[in-house]
Nucleic acid binder design. Structure first.
Length: 577
RNA sequence: GCCCCCAUAGCUCAACGGAUAGAGCGUAAGCCUCCGGAGCUUGAGAUAGAGGUUCGAUUCCUCUUGGGGGCACCA
């Protein structure tokens, strides 16, 4: 139980007595903006004022007496806030707790014993792995870690579109747009990356060709059908090679990004299951026939009509999504299924959910869609259809190159602080910069990405947090004694008081990230913690001071918290950088 | 045309209905023979407009303006 929880519980007890039959209002225990207002504050007196017919200040005064406890000081502030300040012994004990708990600090049991499946990334074979997928992966991985940290068993799932018109377009281009022999073409390529890029290019060509040409569209549909029923040996060959090399390339990327999927779902399979569900729904009257297709009239529930089986008898993405929900549950009977995707899918997802509500109510109940914004480029739009897309690979290469040049800038300065010029650290820091730029803002909104400013190595950035961690670790390494949280005395530096206080809130940030499925609460918290630590570091010489033992304990607590928090964001923490 | 999302400093973002709206970038001025200067300190600078609900609104509701996304056989 966190300190906040114990405070909340105590207030609830006292209010229950005071309010009697009026019941306990929905009050909050929040972190005040200013340290002058203590460690936590509650608005409960303000909430009660109306129903009790008394002034808020009056109620607050009375509550202050009833809530008296040796663990905290209480003060009352207009218009009726109750402010709590924990005793210094409690703060110091908390530093001790962090050091004891190590990598478990910040964990909670909010989802203890639950089975959760998280679906994210969802790239399509035959298309590029672009920065949108990178965004989904980064957010999904972080949410998975937060859910795990809350006591749940998590399975990571990836859903890949290995059939459908986009695949048919790529195959069409290979059949019609290249004069070179397909086999020879592919044999010449050494890596899966190269092959994947080739298929991505073919897709772009196919998409462009079919855009305005009806004949091409017709041919693409025929190929789509052939892929689906595997009736043409040559198409099978092309298809199998494309699928294989795309997926192999994606695996390389997942490894680099630090994701390990437990399950891979494919549209080729969910399509069959989806078809079964649709025919079941057709019998139950959930769907209707229209122009040879099977559709759901979403207007009935305030949504819009969508096609589930097209006029060629093939399941659309909608039907596949139904199949996916069921297939997931059969493989892993979950309590909660999270699906992380771009927010352009929002409306679509509501329709699918409405259908599932009628066919498998329980599954719909436990299905939560987490839409994230798009990574847009400041200069122009992005579309894999036109080939005008930034691949995740491009961004990584850019980040590495940019980072190395910054490092050389730093090295050429007078104070050469570069410690570890090795490829692994460069990789960790470059990735840290990219992931943090995604996770630092609320996940629902678009990210306006600009090379000049978005990928920063300074200020509110991933590398700043990594740097702060490395710095704290460096201090701890240099000291030959170990910190002691019980050595706190009255001459403590004011910056370390701010740190003590702020360290209390990490579990709150984790719980908030879970509640809202939004990791940016953690990112934000870590940045503010880092600022406070760096300020402390600049103002207080830790090693050698008379309060060294306590300062070292605080430093260790900061390092542990940063490491745990960055881990939840999927960002690595090099010891030196 | 209908539906959904969004609008905070020059730019990119924070702020469970709560106290003096908080950062980064950029900008101006500084940082001691000292533990890591990817750092620290200080300054200037903002809630799109109009109503409403509330003890209290950046936050909730309505309208206006401006952006983004979606709307039957793509995923």
């Amino acid at each position: 139980m966190t300190l906040r929880d114990s405070l909340y519980e105590k207030i609830s007890q006292v209010i229950a007595e005071l309010a009697g039959s009026l019941g306990v209002p929905d009050f909050s225990v929040e972190v005040p903006e200013s340290i002058e207002y203590g460690d936590y504050a509650t608005n409960v007196a303000l909430m009660l004022a109306k129903s009790l017919g008394r002034s808020p200040m009056d109620i607050a005064e009375e509550l202050a007496k009833k809530l008296t406890d040796e663990r905290w000081e209480i003060s009352v502030a207009p218009p009726g806030f109750l402010n709590f300040r924990f005793a210094s012994t409690i703060r110091a004990a908390h530093i001790g707790t962090i050091i004891e708990m190590q990598d478990q600090y910040g964990a909670n049991e909010l989802l203890k014993g639950k089975k959760v499946i998280v679906e994210y990334t969802d790239p399509n074979p035959f298309k590029e792995f672009h920065i949108g997928h990178l965004m989904s992966n980064t957010i999904g991985e972080s949410i998975s870690r937060v859910v795990e940290f809350s006591g749940a068993e998590v399975k990571r799932a990836n859903y890949q579109g290995d059939v459908g018109l986009h695949v048919a377009k790529a195959v069409w281009a290979i059949l019609n747009k290249t004069s070179l022999n397909f086999k020879k073409q592919v044999e010449r390529m050494n890596t899966d990356k190269e092959k994947a890029a080739y298929f991505g290019l073919m897709y772009a060509m196919g998409a462009k060709a079919s855009e305005s040409d009806e004949q091409t569209q017709k041919e693409v549909k025929e190929i789509n059908k052939k892929i689906f029923d595997r009736s043409d040996p040559y198409i099978n060959e092309v298809y199998d090679e494309g699928r294989k090399s795309s997926l192999a390339y994606f695996e390389e990327i997942y490894k680099l990004l630090g994701t390990k999927f437990d399950f891979s779902f494919f549209e080729s399979k969910t399509g069959e299951k989806g078809k079964e569900l649709v025919s079941e729904g057709l019998q139950k009257g959930v769907f209707e026939q229209s122009d040879n297709a099977i559709v759901f009239r979403g207007e009935k529930v305030g949504l819009h009509t969508r096609v589930f089986i097209n006029s060629a008898g093939l399941p659309t993405y909608e039907a596949k999504e139904l199949g996916l929900a069921v297939e997931k549950y059969e493989l892993y009977p979950y309590d909660l299924a999270l699906v992380v995707t771009g927010n352009e899918i929002r409306e679509y997802f509501k329709v699918v959910r409405a259908v599932l509500q009628q066919l498998r109510p329980q599954l719909a109940e436990n299905l939560v869609h987490i839409p994230h914004g798009m990574l847009r480029l400041k200069s122009g739009k992005m579309s894999s259809r036109t080939g005008d897309v930034m691949r995740a690979e491009d961004l990584l290469v850019y980040a590495r190159v940019e980072l190395v040049s910054r490092i050389h800038e730093i090295m050429s300065g007078e104070k050469d602080m570069w410690r570890a010029e090795n490829q692994k650290t460069v990789e960790q820091v470059a990735l840290g910069a990219i992931k943090y730029s995604i996770l630092r803002q609320s996940a629902g909104k678009d990210i306006i990405f600009d090379f000049e400013t978005s990928l920063s190595f300074y200020g509110d950035s991933g590398p700043y947090l990594q740097y702060t961690y490395a710095r704290a670790r460096s201090v701890l390494r240099k000291s030959d004694t170990k910190g002691d949280p019980t050595s706190r005395n009255k001459t403590i530096h004011e910056d370390s008081v701010a740190l003590e206080r702020y360290l209390l809130y990490f579990p709150d940030a984790v719980a908030e990230a879970l509640r809202t499925y939004n990791p940016h609460h953690i990112a934000n918290y870590l940045f503010h913690l880092s600022q406070k630590f760096n300020s402390f570091y600049a103002h207080e010489k830790i090693i050698g001071s008379e309060r060294m033992l306590y300062s070292l304990a605080v430093t260790e607590a900061v390092a542990i918290t940063l490491k745990n928090g960055l881990n939840l964001l999927g960002i690595e923490t090099p010891e030196e950088m």
